[in-house]
């Protein structure tokens, strides 16, 4: 069994995840990256997207992170996120509606483009994580 490390995902509403894992793949703002045990200390931003956790027994679990900051230490990684979700918690229909709405709003000048863009990214991340299940 490969070496494991502690992963904590903390959202404003409470601790979302706190277990020993072998590997996590996250989408950072600078690109996708994987974290293993004994990673060099690093603090980086997390983009809106899916993450994939691989446990010591090779089981995996994926979910959605809606942006945040990851603090990586050799034995422990802490992700502070705005919100995190498991695919079970995602309503696919709602996400698809949100995607449509965001696309509409991006075409329209009336709405704040940055907000619509963020909403679009969130919706896409949710759909991806749901379909990846």
């Amino acid at each position: 069994m490969a070496e494991t490390f502690r992963l904590k995902i903390i959202a404003p509403t409470g601790i979302f995840f706190d277990e020993d894992i072998e590997r996590i793949v996250i989408r950072g703002t600078e690109g996708e990256f994987a974290v293993l045990a004994e990673h060099t200390p690093l603090t980086t931003t997390v983009a809106i997207g899916t993450f994939n956790i691989i446990f010591g027994d090779k089981k995996s679990k994926c979910g959605t992170l809606l942006g945040g900051v990851a603090t990586i230490n050799p034995r422990e990684t802490i992700i502070l996120t705005d919100a995190a979700e498991w695919p079970e918690e995602i309503d696919l229909k709602r996400a698809q509606e949100a995607k449509e709405r965001a696309l509409q709003r991006l075409k329209d000048d009336k709405y704040d483009a940055a907000r619509a863009q963020a909403a679009l990214e969130r919706a896409i991340a949710r759909i991806n994580s749901k379909e990846g299940l």
């Binding site: 703002t29 060099t40 200390p41 690093l42 603090t43 931003t45 900051v69 502070l80």
Partner: peptide, 29 residues
């Protein structure tokens, strides 16, 4: 106490930029 080999923390992007994310969240929190 936890780990003696605490090497220098790397920042990506720059600390200043990280702060622009962290501060609004800190205040919101």
């Amino acid at each position: 106490g936890k780990s003696k080999d605490l090497t220098v923390m790397l920042y990506e992007p720059e600390p200043e930029e990280l702060l622009t994310y962290l501060i609004p969240n800190f205040v919101s929190s």
